[in-house]
Design a protein around this nucleic acid. Structure first.
Lengths: 346, 346
DNA sequence: CTGAAAGCGCTAACAA
DNA sequence: TTGTTAGCGCTTTCAG
């Protein structure tokens, strides 16, 4: 009943061989005769032998495992990134250990420790938004464990073994606004969340710069700070629709998709048409953007690509060893504008 | 540069103590003087000591880790369940190792092996839908590693150390239909996917039984097999709306939310009102159900609860040891009907 | 081609 | 209260 697992020693005894031979046979070492390998493999099968990775990792000093730490594992974005990470890691022969910080700096700390204790060979992390100090990454740096930030990074983190991959929010916003202008919009509103968050700050800047680049004026009343959810979008849109006709926007770029849906609903409730009277574009390419009527244009953040790139980066660092000094230059992914019905005017 | 991690032995040497004392001090063993503990802890801090869990686990024969295997880590359902699992596991002091099978039986096999090799103390798994044979669980059973299936289980898996937690799809469907009847619907249609999948089979049966229980006739033309996505729902609904007025449904229960959205759109396109002319209810409580107009009623599957329950079950098995024989009686969670606008008639 | 022996870092008898 | 010792299961020199 208390079925102890078969070990190499067990196999060795049963076959009258030494543990070393068994070990070599199982890892298909060239120095072992085919005959022996065959016997070993067969017995291993029969005895349901399972190698003990803990022991192997301890002995080798390499765990073959990567650690992943995300703020949460629900929602739209992170599961996709994690999927990209897991897929690429598997391809490269790594196992993956996934933790979530629940957006809490304390837990982030704990999880980093956990990953280190688990002897991961590298860590991929997206910061909790409450994280203000970075002491818990000190140990990672000290021990020279490769660290890749993705999406949310420490801006001024110095280290020879640190890297990052982020999405170019500015560029995404710039593309959106350029697109809206090409569709004939001349008064483009922007819904934004708190500007101390870099995603909103960068998207807002992209919005402003694109307007300027195309010779359009910047109308302060068209930048609306609102709750970035459906209700907030509705409220913000209603407010804009109350403006005198000449000041009313004919295009909306929302910093996220939920608020864009709210805007869409408000416009429809106002008996105006989307995209004819008001064109709307969101950000993130959430699942539901394909379900609205009209379907919502949005910006795809290439989540899987981000995960994949992050792992490749880590792999490179693992291979080449530490060699850089100073803060990392993050790899910046170009987002992809997806034009759907809500902003397509011809 | 090649910073080896500080070990217990290192601490011992530095302090002129034995490794065992260090070990005990670090784990706050009662037999160590407070003075010593303080010294040890301080040095550990200074040297950035990180315990090597691999070594500890190897020595103790307990890894303190649970394995989780899901078909995929994207979408709506599984991330929430995994979240429930991770949260509860953390509460009970377990680490969690998460794998995905990508709905592929081969990968499932590999992942099970991986988890076993990693010496997990228990495994939580939701089957890939291509899984037909269960040989890869043989090893798990052999070694008496507690196994908990969630959501998708092996119906006739016998074992003293196996358990399961599932959602009562039948009950959920029954609730939906009863609700629709209470709202005054008398001709209720059902959109279903392939009936060889138990989720659809059970929901369909719940639909039929609820009709019978309330004395309503079963109209075969009202069970529509369709692609369970938005397009499929639209097509199915249009087809139903072409029926002669007397045969047309005044209520729709869709086996998932996507098709329900499609139905909603088709009804609106037909200039009929929801819920007045046709009431609609979906299944799964996807995020977007709260974004439609009117908001879509649906059935919440208590994903987090499922994860939590699964872990608790595992914990119980771990504590009590194997004691049952024969196939497990799964724990069945009651789903929760969420009545929103699309089916609320007063 | 195979075996003997050492040791990865930690814990837990047992001894002092 | 602390130290000694042995060993978890595996890999890897080094010697046959």
């Amino acid at each position: 009943m208390a079925n102890r697992r078969a070990s190499i020693t067990d196999l060795a005894k049963t076959l009258g061989l030494s543990p070393s031979t068994i070990s070599r046979a199982l890892s298909d070492h060239a120095d072992v005769s085919e005959a022996t390998k065959a016997r070993v493999r067969q017995l291993a099968e029969e005895m349901h032998y399972q190698p003990n990775q803990l022991a192997a990792a301890l002995r080798r000093g390499r765990s073959n495992t990567l650690g992943v730490l995300v703020p949460h594992i629900t929602g739209h974005f992170f599961p996709l990134v994690v999927n990209g990470i897991a897929t690429e890691a598997a391809k490269l022969g790594f196992n993956v250990m996934i933790c979530q910080s629940n957006e809490d700096a304390r837990q982030e700390q704990k999880n980093i420790d956990l990953l280190m204790n688990s002897q991961v060979e590298g860590i991929l992390v997206s910061l909790a938004n409450t994280t203000q100090s970075f002491g818990h990454f000190e140990a990672v740096r000290q021990q020279n464990i490769p660290l890749v930030f993705f999406d949310r990074m420490v801006e001024d983190f110095e280290g020879s073994n640190v890297s990052a991959v982020v999405i170019d929010d500015y560029q995404g916003a710039y593309q959106v606004v350029t697109h809206l202008i090409e569709q004939g919009c001349t008064r483009i509103a922007h819904f934004t969340g708190p500007l101390h968050l870099s995603i909103h700050k960068n998207r807002h800047q992209g919005y402003l710069d694109a307007l300027v680049a195309h010779g359009l004026p910047i109308a302060p009343e068209l930048t609306v700070h609102c709750e970035m959810n459906q209700k907030g979008g509705q409220t913000a849109m209603r407010q804009l629709l109350r403006l005198p006709a000449a000041q009313r926007p004919d295009g909306v770029f929302s910093s996220n998709d939920l608020a864009a849906v709210g805007a869409l609903q408000a416009v429809k409730a106002h008996r105006l048409r989307v995209p004819k009277d008001v064109a709307i574009v969101g950000f993130s390419n959430e699942v539901f953007t394909a379900l609205t009527e009209p379907m919502l244009s949005s910006v795809d953040q290439r989540c899987e690509q981000m995960g994949k790139t992050a792992v490749q980066l880590l792999q490179k660092m693992l291979k080449s060893g530490p060699n850089r000094v100073g803060p990392p230059k993050p790899i910046v992914l170009k987002p992809k504008l997806l034009v759907r019905e809500s902003s397509q005017r011809r």
